[in-house]
Simulated assay, not measured.
Amino acid sequence: MENTANTDTTKIVGEKIKTLRQNLSITIEELAQRSNLTTEQIERIENNIDIPSLAPLIKIARVLGVRLGTFLDDQDESGPVVCRKQEAQETISFSNNATQSRKHMEYRSLSKSKTDRHMEPFMIDVAPTQGSDFILSSHEGEEFIMVMEGTMEISYGTTTYLLEEGDSIYYDSIVPHHVHAFEGQAAKILAVIYTPI
């Protein structure tokens, strides 16, 4: 059941990007150039082969002039949105082609029904990984992370921060960064991402 949810979400993201791009009469080549991605990356995303990690997704959203949440929305609700524990079970696996551990994080969106949002809150399950070859990325906006279980390592610029259960960090996303579990152990974090349009 969960795999079906992942596939459906992936298809929605790819189709929404393609539709938005076509509505704006932007070619795949133009979108790639303006978002600093390759045409192959854009094609793979639009054809539902890949769902990108957050940084490329945020760059695509900025070029298309939409919120990051536009790609994830499933309903239209402008008032308050309550997300019950059992409703946050559908996961989104963002891949990152630069690492061997392509799907090491499963994102549970806590706000998919809120259409006019500026923040993206996620509960993220971090799977155990073997690799330690992390590639830092940067994008517009800010991020807040609180460790719910386990220990996390945040590479931020040239500094590395070790966060244990109950610890939190708030930083500007424009500085190259990478979030991963300490020594490849499983963990769980609450992450809130803000991206200006």
Score class of each variant (00 low, 15 high):
G131E: 09
S137C: 07
L136D: 09
V126H: 00
M105V: 09
S111G: 15
K112N: 04
E142R: 14
V147M: 03
M119P: 02
E140R: 15
M119G: 08
I124G: 00
K103N: 14
E106D: 12
T129F: 00
T151Y: 00
E140D: 14
E149G: 03
E149Q: 09
H104Q: 15
R102A: 10
S132N: 14
L110Q: 10
R108D: 03
I154H: 02
M123C: 11
P121E: 07
S101R: 05
E143P: 03
K112L: 04
E142N: 15
H104P: 11
M119H: 11
F134S: 05
T129W: 00
V126W: 00
D125R: 01
M152D: 09
I145Y: 02
E143Y: 02
S111F: 10
S101I: 08
D125N: 05
T99C: 08
I154M: 06
E140H: 14
E140M: 12
T115Y: 05
D116T: 05
G150T: 06
S137M: 03
E153G: 00
F134N: 05
F122C: 04
G141S: 08
S137R: 09
I124L: 01
M123S: 10
T99L: 11
D116Y: 00
K103S: 14
G150L: 04
D125V: 01
M105C: 02
L110M: 14
E143Q: 09
D133P: 13
Y107A: 02
K114S: 11
I154S: 03
F122L: 05
L136G: 06
T151H: 05
I145T: 11
P128M: 03
T115D: 07
M146R: 12
E140W: 08
V147H: 02
Y107C: 01
T99H: 13
Q130K: 15
T99D: 10
R102H: 10
I124T: 02
E143S: 12
E153R: 04
I135D: 08
R117C: 03
F134D: 08
M146L: 13
S109Q: 05
S137H: 10
G141C: 09
R102L: 12
Q100L: 14
S113F: 06
E143D: 14
S132Q: 08
E142M: 15
F144T: 11
G141K: 06
T99V: 02
D125A: 00
S109K: 00
E143M: 06
Q130F: 14
A127D: 12
Q130C: 15
K103G: 15
P128C: 08
V147G: 02
E106T: 04
Q130P: 15
H139C: 01
K112G: 02
Q100R: 13
E149D: 12
S111T: 10
E149F: 01
V147L: 03
V147W: 01
E149S: 07
G150Q: 08
S111W: 06
G150I: 02
S155P: 00
G131S: 11
L110G: 11
H139K: 04
G141M: 06
M105N: 01
L110W: 09
L136C: 11
F134K: 02
F144A: 13
R102Y: 05
H118G: 15
M123D: 11
S113I: 04
L110Y: 07
I145P: 03
E120A: 07
S101V: 05
S111R: 08
K114D: 07
M119R: 02
K114V: 05
T99P: 11
S109N: 13
M123W: 11
S109C: 12
R102F: 09
D125H: 04
T151N: 07
Y156R: 01
S113M: 12
